[in-house]
Simulated scan of single mutants.
Amino acid sequence: MFITDHAHGDSSAQQQTMAPDDRPLYSKGPVTIGDRVWICEHAIILPNVTIGDGAIIAAGAVVTKDVPPGCVAAGNPARVVRRIVED
């Protein structure tokens, strides 16, 4: 799995002349992961995303938007494919 909250530089003309490794790191927003979250293998969670309590992130999913509590998210970009209902 890969979780990140930062990027190498921005898209300004000045930074486009620099190699990516030379650009300063900056945060694009926090990643918040709730309790009892299951993140499967090779999932990617990008900046400024909240994953709610009890959610499941499918293998290989690329999470670019918030995932509500108790939901299964899958795909690229990830989307909610199922809501988990407890009896």
Rank of each mutant, 00 (worst) to 15 (best):
N76E: 04
G29L: 04
V67I: 11
R79M: 03
A7K: 06
P24Q: 00
N76C: 10
V37D: 10
V80R: 03
I33M: 12
F2G: 08
T17F: 14
D66V: 06
P69S: 12
D35E: 07
K28C: 09
K65E: 15
G9E: 05
D87C: 06
P24F: 02
A59K: 06
S27Q: 11
Y26P: 03
P77T: 01
Q16H: 09
V80L: 04
I33Q: 13
G9Q: 02
S12N: 11
V62M: 01
W38S: 09
Q15S: 13
I39V: 12
V85K: 07
D5Y: 06
Y26E: 15
I56V: 13
V37F: 08
Q15K: 13
D87K: 06
E41H: 12
P69G: 07
E41T: 13
A74P: 06
H42W: 09
H8P: 09
P47K: 04
K28N: 09
D22W: 06
G70M: 10
I45W: 03
E86L: 11
I45R: 01
A55K: 07
A58T: 12
M18A: 12
S12F: 02
L25H: 12
V62H: 00
D5C: 14
V62Q: 00
G52S: 13
P69E: 08
T32L: 14
R23E: 03
P47Q: 00
I56P: 04
T64F: 03
I3M: 11
T17C: 05
A55M: 06
T17L: 14
V31S: 11
S11V: 04
M1W: 01
L46W: 02
L25E: 08
D10R: 08
A78S: 09
G70L: 03
R83T: 14
A7T: 09
W38H: 06
R83K: 15
G54K: 05
A13L: 10
S12Y: 07
E86F: 02
Q14S: 15
P30Y: 02
I44S: 05
P47D: 00
E41S: 12
A74Y: 01
V81G: 12
V67L: 07
P77H: 02
F2D: 08
L25D: 07
Q14A: 15
R82D: 06
I45K: 02
R82C: 04
V63C: 00
A73F: 03
G60N: 11
I51A: 10
A61T: 06
C71Y: 01
V72H: 04
I39W: 08
D53F: 09
F2K: 07
K65G: 07
S12K: 01
A78W: 00
A13H: 10
A59N: 04
D53H: 15
F2T: 11
A19N: 15
F2R: 08
G70I: 03
Q14H: 14
V80C: 04
D53R: 04
W38P: 05
G70H: 09
G75Q: 05
R23I: 03
A74W: 05
I39H: 06
H6D: 11
G29C: 15
P20S: 07
I45L: 02
T4Y: 06
D22M: 13
D5A: 12
D5K: 08
D10Q: 03
D53L: 12
R36A: 13
D22A: 11
G54R: 05
G34K: 04
P47L: 02
Q16V: 02
V49T: 07
A43R: 01
D10I: 01
P68Q: 00
A13N: 15
G29Q: 10
P68W: 00
I84L: 15
P30K: 10
A78C: 08
T17S: 15
H6M: 15
